[in-house]
């Protein structure tokens, strides 16, 4: 089954053994907490060199999760595409000594540095998040969040959303295929916008009708308002070793940054 969120549950145990890396051997909660801790530290850094180290760490995590480098880095590039305009503008809006001028507009060193800092931090955090958390099954993410005391209703909402994204997406493609069969070609005009609006309205109507059937089926099977989370999350020695390695490194980054040891 191809799932839009990337990895779906492995179809057989042998499958998962082949594709899983060191990251997947950790408890999902460890991975979520590590990603959150890494993000907080990376965002707090002020030295470009230390940000570069953080980006390298995120790259190592990608390797340890055995994520395919091509598609993963393409996703990062898409994210960079969103922010490139913001970054390009910064050298011209941050005051400071000019590094160079473009058509008479001075670009400041301070602005260049700030743009580089944002690019490094954004990529480091996104890559670490994709590697540590994005490499797990979406359902596992929900269970791990529940075990980390995220409110039960939010977890249930997440689990339902994850479960039905693929279903609704299949429905969406079915409707789009039907539209294409009737000669629909998306263009920049009112007809396209109206057709897409009807399409989304139809998806919502069908989604609600589907949810009514889901609720009836759940009640039929004794749903009393709680979804029991059947899993066996357990911290192991590996998680201890990982934490014992990561925490000093993150603390070291913060201390070095605070002391401004590297000349940046």
């Amino acid at each position: 089954m191809s799932h839009i969120l990337g990895r779906s549950a492995p179809t057989s145990p042998g499958d998962s053994a082949r594709t899983d890396g060191l990251i997947q051997a950790l408890d999902p909660r460890t991975r979520i907490l590590a990603a959150a801790g890494f993000a907080l530290v990376a965002v707090a850094l002020t030295s470009l060199w230390l940000m570069l180290i953080a980006l390298v760490m995120a790259g190592l995590a990608m390797g340890a999760a055995r994520l395919p480098a091509g598609p993963t880095l393409r996703r990062m590039a898409m994210m960079d595409g969103f922010i490139v305009v913001l970054l390009v503008m910064l050298p011209f809006t941050v005051p400071g000594p000019a590094a160079f001028t473009v058509l008479g507009w001075p670009a400041s060193w301070a602005g260049l540095e700030q743009a580089a800092a944002i690019a490094l931090k954004a990529n480091a955090v996104a890559l670490a998040l994709l590697s540590l958390v994005g490499s797990m099954d979406p359902t596992t993410l929900g269970h791990a969040l529940a075990r980390l005391r995220v409110p039960e209703r939010l977890v249930h909402l997440l689990l339902f959303t994850v479960r039905y994204i693929a279903v609704i997406e299949a429905e969406y493609h079915r409707l789009r295929r039907a539209m294409r069969a009737r000669g629909f070609r998306p263009r920049t005009n009112g007809h396209t916008l109206r057709s897409l609006g009807y399409l989304i309205g139809m998806l919502l109507v069908r989604a609600l009708e589907r949810s009514e059937r889901i609720l009836q089926a759940m009640k039929c099977r004794g749903f009393t308002g709680r979804l029991p989370l059947l899993d066996t999350l357990r911290f192991s020695a590996r998680d201890g070793v990982f934490a014992a390695g990561l925490i000093p490194v993150l603390a070291g980054l913060l201390i070095l940054d605070f002391a401004h040891v590297p000349a940046a």
Binding site: R153, Y164, I165, Y172, L199
Partner: peptide, 27 residues
């Protein structure tokens, strides 16, 4: 969100997730 509403909210939430994947051409 009472628990009886969570299936509806979840499936609709999934629908809005899919809707955000729909691209509209501008030129």
């Amino acid at each position: 969100l009472t628990l009886e509403k969570i299936p509806a909210a979840g499936v609709l939430s999934a629908t809005f997730f899919v809707a955000a994947l729909v691209h509209v051409p501008i030129g």
